[in-house]
Design a protein around this nucleic acid. Sequence first.
DNA 1: TGATTCACCGATAGCGCTATCGGTGAAAAA
DNA 2: TTTTTCACCGATAGCGCTATCGGTGAATCA
Lengths: 241, 241
Amino acid sequence: MASTPLSRSEAKDLTRRRLIRAAFAILDKEGEAGLTTVKVSKAAGIAQSSFYVHFKDRQELLRALGEQAGERLRGAMREARRRAREAPDDRERHREAFRIPLEAICGHPALFRLGLRTRHDPSSPLQEFAVETAAAYRAHLVADLASFGFPIERESDRRRLEMIADGIGALTNAMAIGHIDGRYPDLEEAVDVLVAFSYGYLGLLRKDSSAWSGNPPSAPSDGPPVDVCPEPDGSSKNGNL
Amino acid sequence: MASTPLSRSEAKDLTRRRLIRAAFAILDKEGEAGLTTVKVSKAAGIAQSSFYVHFKDRQELLRALGEQAGERLRGAMREARRRAREAPDDRERHREAFRIPLEAICGHPALFRLGLRTRHDPSSPLQEFAVETAAAYRAHLVADLASFGFPIERESDRRRLEMIADGIGALTNAMAIGHIDGRYPDLEEAVDVLVAFSYGYLGLLRKDSSAWSGNPPSAPSDGPPVDVCPEPDGSSKNGNL
DNA sequence: TGATTCACCGATAGCGCTATCGGTGAAAAA
DNA sequence: TTTTTCACCGATAGCGCTATCGGTGAATCA
């Protein structure tokens, strides 16, 4: 009950966090077009003019939101890597490799949507950030795939890995969105589907380059090949902020 | 050289089309936030006030854009179905099933991006339209998959097919975006990757339900199973306008 | 030919937003 | 205590956008 008598700097910091919190809520509800200094300030309980005590201008708020989102996602992904290392092995580990990024995404649905949206929106100051984040995630996946034995020497090999990584990211995003929207209530089913798709590109490991010319690769015989799992351990996440 | 003396209605129609054309260009360059009556009118070469001769308000322009986009995509997909029926068979047909939607998308990059963007933007009047289009596409793919022998009786079976369809759409989108962005210059390589992923879920056809519990399915022995191709013949396209 | 229609124009009302400015009171520093 | 700092406030300038209104001239119709 007794209100802590906040120091001046503490109070300011609190207000700033209230602003950012309010901004995320509005962003999620109304999109970037609805994110005005008027609404954010009102939602945070201060005068519109006081907004400028905390941010130089509207752009700076956007930048702050982007940075904070990135930080949160990096944190979530660090945690994901940690958990991935603890996964039993083989099959369960393979599933975990898909489950973890899904959970990381679903833990931050607002951020995720924001990234997905801004990534294709040239009018958004966050586009560049979203695109870079996606590229970073792709690069991590590429490295992981290469470490599992996929060729990467030639330029065309590398591009192929990037396409596969891109595909994995897109699949993960799609399943996560479906879950967030309530269409796929059971996340394990989403993992099932991701695993199923993964056998498609994993088959490429077992074949010579002729596999690329349209021959269906022979399947991973039985039980996933040991340790073949595209660890989602990029420090960024899914092309979504 | 001799300018055709347009009738009044012809001239009006021309102006309207100029407005819509300009609107699409602006939408693609600056996003929905940049789509103002001022800019559109100026780009179309008329006074801002004359905008209202053609559209009741800004919303109506947006609606018109959505409808026109839908029509174009339906047209592209009709053409796609037609071409798919002409495809040789087996392997080439399987590839064609992925190539065609890719080409349809890449033929309308602006529309595609618009759909991808608005689908996750609650502030966009086009969101509902984009979401519905995506759902329709998914439904078509589900029907196609079912016709290839995937079970669909139980509710969980149906949901699974929807997830797979969702995944196929997401993969196609990702490859198309990569191509449009110039990262994947060769569309055939994109088809390669889609085909590779497809062997993942096609493998499910060959196994009992235990395949879902994590066992890698046996591969389509050699040469794709006859006619096993998820024909992309939805009347809509890819979850993108 | 004379009357009418209507696509287009310029001007402008009105709104919401951004950003600035001077004022105020309480915390912090002297 | 006296002075300084500064987080916050209300007012307001200025801008871009939406939508309306009356006017104009050329196409269309009688």
